[in-house]
């Protein structure tokens, strides 16, 4: 069942297109840096100005740039489609009549969405790493603290960062899965999930609401940068991952409660 669900997801052309676009973004960024000149000192987001010195930083720059919009967009599409997409096509009734237990189907869908979060993040990081290494010199990695690490331990840190980014997306994925059980219209579930994402970002940007900022699931998304300090500080990353776990617990439970009791009319 799990195997079937993963095969089913990753065989879709839509998924290939999503992953293709995600992998193309770092390529574009690196090419722009190479041929249009890098940002001046102190300008541009973190990591971007380090790329010209060391190609492996392209992976981190790509993660930083895709994390606010492109990665969550892809996750919203896949998570929102999980159940609602089957309902829209009418295949949900046939899946359930096979029979496939509702809990079993939901778990299979959830695992597929989680796997997608990792694959999507990895696509971004690997594309950045490869293209950056081809177009720019590669060498020892200078940490945010100013020390240098060997190339391999630098790459290991980058892989770790990609892992943290993937885990950061899980809160949103759980919200998407829940939205997917609420409606029979896949596009509605996707749009709703994106709406929640934008709302979280907006609330997080209003200084007067600083009291609730720590509870916004987007708040700690950029904490993965802490992995690039000489001595990794885990506080922000730990807080972020705990918050994601909380969101997953709440929304996965809600999705389960909703899906196992709903009348399937589609």
């Amino acid at each position: 069942m799990l195997r079937a669900e993963l095969l089913h997801l990753f065989r879709r052309r839509r998924i290939h297109a999503l992953l293709g676009v995600l992998a193309a973004l770092p390529v574009v960024i690196v090419f722009v840096l190479k041929f249009a000149g890098g940002p001046g000192n102190g300008e541009g987001p973190t990591f971007l100005n380090q790329v010209t010195n060391n190609g492996v930083f392209a992976a981190l720059a790509a993660l930083t740039i895709t994390l606010p919009v492109f990665l969550p967009l892809a996750v919203s599409i896949v998570a929102g489609d999980a159940i609602a997409g089957e309902a829209t096509q009418g295949t949900l009734r046939y899946l359930l009549a096979r029979p496939t237990g509702r809990t079993r189907l939901l778990v299979a869908k959830a695992v597929a969405v989680v796997v997608f979060c990792f694959v999507a993040t990895l696509a971004v990081a690997v594309a950045g790493l490869v293209v950056g290494s081809i177009l720019f010199p590669v060498g020892r990695v200078v940490t945010l603290s100013g020390d240098t690490l060997s190339l391999w331990s630098g790459i290991l840190r980058i892989v770790g960062a990609a892992g943290v980014v993937s885990l950061s997306l899980l809160g949103l994925a759980a919200i998407g899965l829940f939205a997917s059980t609420l409606t029979d219209v896949a596009i509605g579930a996707m749009a709703g999930t994106l709406g929640v994402l934008i709302l979280s970002g907006v609330l997080d940007a209003i200084p007067q609401l600083s009291a609730i900022h720590p509870w916004m699931f987007t708040h700690g998304w950029l904490s993965f940068g802490d992995l690039l300090r000489t001595h990794v500080t885990w506080t922000a990353i730990g807080k972020n991952l705990a918050l994601q776990a909380g969101y997953v617990l709440v929304f996965a439970t809600a999705a389960w409660a909703r899906f196992t009791t709903k009348d399937v009319l589609a």
């Binding site: 195997r3 079937a4 095969l7 096509q89 009418g90 295949t91 046939y94 096979r98 029979p99």
Partner: peptide, 27 residues
């Protein structure tokens, strides 16, 4: 076996792939 309110399959899969998917998700 059931056919409820018309057939519903995945438009982007072939007839055979649709059946294979349905066979795979059952018990």
């Amino acid at each position: 076996g059931a056919l409820v309110e018309g057939p519903a399959c995945y438009p982007w899969l072939t007839g055979r792939q649709n059946l294979e998917r349905m066979d795979a998700v059952g018990p």
